[in-house]
């Protein structure tokens, strides 16, 4: 299992059908454990997960409960991905300044 593959993602929006729903359901049942952490616990720990992952650690082994939650919860997975990308930018010194980010947003809005 990879956190790159959250079972609630990977399809086109609006392309929902029984096939995809069935696949998601069966995969989520297959991954189900007796004990799972909730979203609050996941989001409290996800900064550690992101920093360890960016440091090259095997996060699936270090934080297996969190890893499982991210595979099963599309909303937490979305926030994890956004945090990982933001931290990656920040750590590499590539997080743009306010003016540059606003230019990107305003340019997109006008397009």
């Amino acid at each position: 299992m990879s956190t790159e593959e959250n079972i609630l993602q990977g399809g086109q929006s609006g392309d929902m059908d029984e096939d995809r729903a069935f696949r998601r359901l069966v995969r989520s049942v297959d991954l189900t454990q007796d004990e799972e952490i909730d979203c609050t616990t996941c989001l409290e720990q996800v900064p550690v997960y992101v920093d360890r992952e960016l440091a090259g650690a095997d996060v699936a082994k270090e934080l297996p409960e969190l890893h499982l939650h991210l595979a099963l919860c599309g909303d937490c997975f979305e926030e994890y991905e956004a945090l990982r990308d933001l931290v990656e930018l920040d750590v590499s010194g590539d997080l743009p300044d306010t003016a540059t980010l606003l230019e990107q947003l305003d340019g997109r809005n006008e397009a």
């Binding site: 989001l43 900064p47 550690v48 992101v50 920093d51 926030e79 945090l83 933001l86 931290v87």
Partner: peptide, 14 residues
Amino acid sequence: DCRFTTWAYRIIIN
């Protein structure tokens, strides 16, 4: 146990 900025960014993203 993580960078302070990672901890803070998680809060605003959520």
